[in-house]
Design a binder for these strands. Structure first.
Lengths: 134, 134
DNA sequence: GCAAGTATGCACCTTTAGGTAAGTACCAGG
DNA sequence: CCTGGTACTTACCTAAAGGTGCATACTTGC
């Protein structure tokens, strides 16, 4: 590599900004197995923890909480604790989160529109994996 | 809950389709550290392996190839092998892939629009992690 | 009085996604 | 003739993401 020839040339910013486009930034926020689902579901309005848990099927408590905390720290949702005796908490999208969730809609639509092909693809994918594993 | 009252009502399909909406399906396809980036980049037209590798910074050969294979198997892109002596291969989006990549645009836009806030958030996130780890 | 539901916290464990480093077959260029 | 570039492949390893199960503190319903 030609870089190795240079005697450690400049490069004064070790902080790599590294954005192909805004996509990198977005992905950093929504990466997490259930995060897109959570955000998208919250478009329906304030949601209690329990509801969310039931909505986002198969998510474990640990991970759900963890994701919620991260999303809150990232400023896309807000946690509301009503300080009631049987705990009562709900989650809302911030304006930022709302716009993000809306940006997810095309993906949702795409999935819906191509549901049939997806079914086929997943079926093939599964049998393909089975062969490979056996 | 009133559901518990019902004596194990119907539910004749044990094959769980499990789609909150099409989002689940979409996520199954684009989940992979670099997949969204790959798809989005391919919107620019046929791209050789090397170009792609250089475009999607920091991706390793192993993973890039792997992702490309999966995306091909999922029918969103096509691999073109020109069977030439120094290998020459390029990748193109299928119509399906094209529509998918287009559905990613809002995410990209969102990231760009909120770049400033993202910078702040990531900075805070990092120092937050550092505290926690130390 | 005991189970269940509320929203979590924590310790532990497994899985797997991704990275590293090597090798392949072939050719062009210095 | 040896290095570098093409597009991969394979074996191996690690870090991290996610899952499981238990505990909490309080209340209401059976």
């Amino acid at each position: 590599m030609s870089e190795a020839v240079h005697p450690t040339t400049v490069e004064p910013t070790p902080i790599a900004p590294r954005f192909t486009c805004g996509l990198d930034a977005t992905l950093k926020i929504i990466s997490g197995k259930w995060k897109p689902l959570i955000l998208y579901f919250l478009l329906r309005g304030p949601t209690r923890y329990g509801e969310l848990k039931r909505a986002v099927r198969d998510v474990s408590d640990k991970v759900l909480i963890q994701h919620l905390k991260e999303l809150e720290a990232d400023g896309v949702l807000r946690r509301n604790d009503y300080k009631e005796v049987p705990p009562r908490v709900d989650y809302t999208l911030t304006p930022l989160g709302q716009s993000l969730a809306q940006a997810l809609e095309p993906l949702c639509t795409w999935g819906t529109d191509n549901m049939v092909e997806m079914q086929k693809i997943f079926a093939e994918r599964d049998s393909w994996l089975r062969e490979k594993h056996a």
